[in-house]
């Protein structure tokens, strides 16, 4: 009799365990667990750089020899050949703010070698001149300030002086070199 009771208990226990197992499987089979994950990151990346340089306007026999952006977009080189007075090339240069902080153009340094000669020698006439437009340090728009994601395109033009007398120019007037340095800082206003 006792032996039968024990056996019955075992059967019932086994059955219950199996039932629980079945129920668990069934529940699992008839249900889906939905998990929604989200990730948030706070980034303070600073990334303001030159994104493109394109020669787009040619006058006369002017030629663009080369235009390159340096590594990281923190420098660019423009090389131009001018053949006759009046020749010119205009370059579109784009600066972009791909960081998450607003930027502000705080300083522009503009220097060209022949301009120095003009300053040093009275009566000296430059054969080649550089000029720029489209950026400054005083405007409230993209000429000065770049919010994250914004960009500004400005122009640099190099010109062979139109009424320059090419029968008399000196060796120093054969070339002109440009140095244009833009300094962007975080805009804290």
């Amino acid at each position: 009799m006792d032996k039968n009771n024990n056996q019955n208990k075992k059967i019932i226990l086994g059955g219950l365990i199996a039932l629980v197992f079945l129920l668990a499987v069934g529940f699992a089979a008839f249900g889906s667990q939905l998990t929604i994950k989200g990730t948030a990151r706070v980034s303070t990346a600073w990334d303001v750089h030159i994104s493109s340089v394109i020669p787009y306007e040619f006058v006369g026999s002017a030629q663009d020899v080369a235009h390159e952006i340096g590594e990281g977009g923190l420098s660019a080189v423009l090389e131009t050949d001018l053949k006759a007075p009046g020749d010119s090339v205009t370059y579109d240069i784009t600066v972009v703010n791909q960081g998450s902080l607003p930027a502000k153009l705080s300083d522009i340094k503009f220097h060209q070698t022949q301009a120095q000669e003009v300053a040093d020698q009275k009566g000296y006439k430059p054969s080649i001149t550089y000029s720029y437009k489209g950026i400054d340090t005083v405007s409230d728009d993209t000429k000065t300030k770049l919010k994250p994601g914004e960009e500004v395109t400005f122009q640099v033009t190099v010109t062979f002086t139109k009424d320059f007398d090419t029968t008399k120019y000196t060796e120093a007037q054969i070339e002109n070199e440009l140095e244009l340095i833009l300094t962007y800082n975080q805009d804290v206003e």
Binding site: L74, V77, L78, T80, L82, K83, I128, T166, I181, Q186
Partner: peptide, 17 residues
């Protein structure tokens, strides 16, 4: 949080009279 970008140019007058 600051960038300095330098643009250099060189132009030559290859003219002949």
């Amino acid at each position: 949080f600051s960038s300095k970008m330098e643009i250099k140019g060189i132009a030559r007058a290859n003219t002949s009279w």
